[in-house]
Design a protein around this nucleic acid. Structure first.
Length: 489
RNA sequence: GCCCCGGUCGUCUAGCCAGGUCAGGAUGCCACCCUUUCAAGGUGGAGAUCAGGGGAUCGAAGCCCCUCCGGGGUACCA
């Protein structure tokens, strides 16, 4: 690779940025960073009918969230600005004129319906045939002379009617197409906007893109692009068509497969670094055995020869596992801060501090950050007063023995602990001994205390949890539990 | 219909290009260990006739041919 590596991510702002789309961005970015090249973002807003408000911002937010930075593009600009195709219309129009002049393009007045008929009539190939549409034969002069449909005309590229077009794809190898099977595709629409094909070729050339890395769904349109490069006399870039990401049914990932927008993953509490690690493994591998890879190692080893050819199903289960791995790997303070973002209350200064005491307790139980609120609810404030007292009674006990055990615990704690003397080690020693004298199993006794202290029968280790909750609140919760049991007895 | 790409455990994949030990790892699932619950961790297990069929070879997941299946593309969408 002699020249500088320049790759681009070229999304259309037609909705929420898709996970498959973002994966393409990620691969381009990794490739650029691996080669010390440039990563460019270009907004392909050539379809005026599908624009969605706020989509550009959502796309950029998605990139930022994953920590993918761009060297040229919206907000940062660069030597090839503007980076929104809607602001580059003159370029495409000028280029279309050039093709018209060269005889590589022509005006076409045919209606969609007429073309549809043509395609149907051509049952064998099912494609539009230049023979049916006479516009190409009319040439430039003929088209201009038709005042009636002047406003409806488009410009089509005149595909060569013989020969082959071949690409040496960096991932798929040599692929070739018969030119006579290709349609004369539209390059400039009747509204004056270019189609993807014209715009992408023009801008990739103008922006000096060295490698076009895009999803496999683009492979079939590559011969069109190659022919455009040739007609313009431009040197084509290298092409690398990435395997697609599919849903469990192996069809192209779409909304019906559940969460597909990058923002949903953020909202559900996935760590960006975990999602990134997971996504890169969809189609790329370091060595076949390493799964958790640091970003630096990914960048250092990100080469095209390690990219798979086959499409990959997006496996939520494995993502969840990996998210857990990354959560467990976080420094407690960092985890606490991230958890705070998922607790839908304003946390005071004390509560933030408290949260960093809690974080280590829930760390290895947390799979997603959005569980933070529920998983810490009983640690904050007062216990929900209305949990069912019946869950206090553990397997193999009755309410009376539970009640007795609770009263004994209360008495013992009141006598032998103080607010500043409520450490988990001491609690464990004390209550372990007490439990032994009670003719209850550890499981039963500790289970009872767990439920009484937390209102749940699942929690982090009991004594650490009690310590974090603190003596005052533990005592009041024990009393509360005793009352519930008293009512039941 | 036509064109193109793909096909290794349920899933992500290593191995393929430069044929040669029980096809390796991870996830998910199951069991056991640890254990005050849930997790985490540890150990083990089930799970792939390498899509199928031919062929050349002493030898094929790898090379060649055919078939099947899956997907993508066939728009004045990207």
């Amino acid at each position: 690779m002699a020249a500088e590596v320049r790759v681009r991510y070229a999304p259309s702002p037609t909705g929420q940025p898709h996970i498959g789309n973002i994966r393409t961005a990620l691969f381009n970015w990794l490739f650029a960073r691996h080669h010390g090249g440039k990563f460019i973002v270009r907004i392909e807003d050539t379809d005026q009918t599908r624009l969605v408000d706020g989509a550009v911002e959502a796309i950029l937010d998605g990139l930022r969230w994953l920590n993918i930075d761009w060297d040229e593009g919206p907000e940062v600009d660069g030597p090839h600005a503007p980076y929104e195709q809607s602001n580059r219309l003159e370029i495409y129009q000028r280029l279309s004129e050039q093709l018209l002049d060269q005889g590589n393009a022509y005006h076409c007045h045919c209606s969609r319906e007429a073309l549809e008929q043509l395609r149907k009539a051509n049952r064998e190939s099912g494609s539009y045939s230049a023979e049916g549409c006479r516009c190409r034969a009319l040439g430039r002069a003929g088209a201009v002379g038709d005042p009636v449909s002047d406003g409806e005309r488009v410009i089509r590229f005149a595909m060569p009617q013989s020969g082959m077009t071949q690409v040496s794809d960096l991932i798929r190898g040599d692929v070739e197409w018969r030119n006579d099977l290709q349609e004369d595709f539209v390059i400039l629409k009747s509204d004056g906007f270019p189609t993807y094909h014209l715009a992408v070729v023009a801008d990739d050339h103008l922006m000096e893109i060295s490698h076009v890395m895009r999803a496999e769904e683009w492979l079939p349109s590559t011969p069109r692009h190659l022919q455009l490069y040739q007609a313009f006399g431009f040197q084509p870039p290298e092409f690398a068509h990435l395997p697609m990401i599919t849903g469990p049914d192996r069809a192209k990932l779409s909304k019906r497969h559940g969460a597909t927008a990058i923002g949903e993953y953020r909202d559900e509490g996935y760590l960006p670094e975990a999602l990134l690690n997971f996504m890169v493994l969809l189609g790329w591998s370091l060595d076949g055995s390493t799964e958790v890879v640091s970003l630096q190692d990914i960048i250092d080893n990100f080469t095209l020869d390690r990219i798979t050819k086959s499409a990959a199903i997006f496996d939520q289960d494995k993502l969840l596992w990996m998210n857990g791995v990354y959560i467990r790997d976080l420094p407690a303070k960092d985890l606490a801060e991230r958890m705070a973002a998922y607790i839908p209350r304003e946390l005071g200064c004390d509560e933030h501090k408290y949260l960093s005491n809690i974080a280590p307790l829930v760390q290895e139980r947390l799979k997603r950050l959005d569980e933070s609120d529920d998983m810490t609810a009983y640690l904050f404030g007062d216990l929900a007063p209305d949990y069912d007292g019946a869950i206090l009674v553990q397997k193999g006990m009755d309410a009376e023995s539970a009640s007795d055990a609770l009263r004994a615990t209360i008495a013992s704690l009141e006598a032998d602990t103080a607010p500043n003397d409520f450490g988990h080690e001491k609690l464990e020693a004390m209550l372990g001994e007490l439990g032994a004298s009670l003719s209850l199993s550890r499981r039963q006794f500790f289970g009872l205390l767990r439920t009484a202290s937390t209102g749940r029968n699942v929690s982090p280790p009991l004594f650490e949890t009690m310590e974090v909750i603190g003596r005052d609140r533990v005592m009041s919760r024990l009393h509360q539990a005793a009352q519930k049991l008293g009512a039941a007895v």
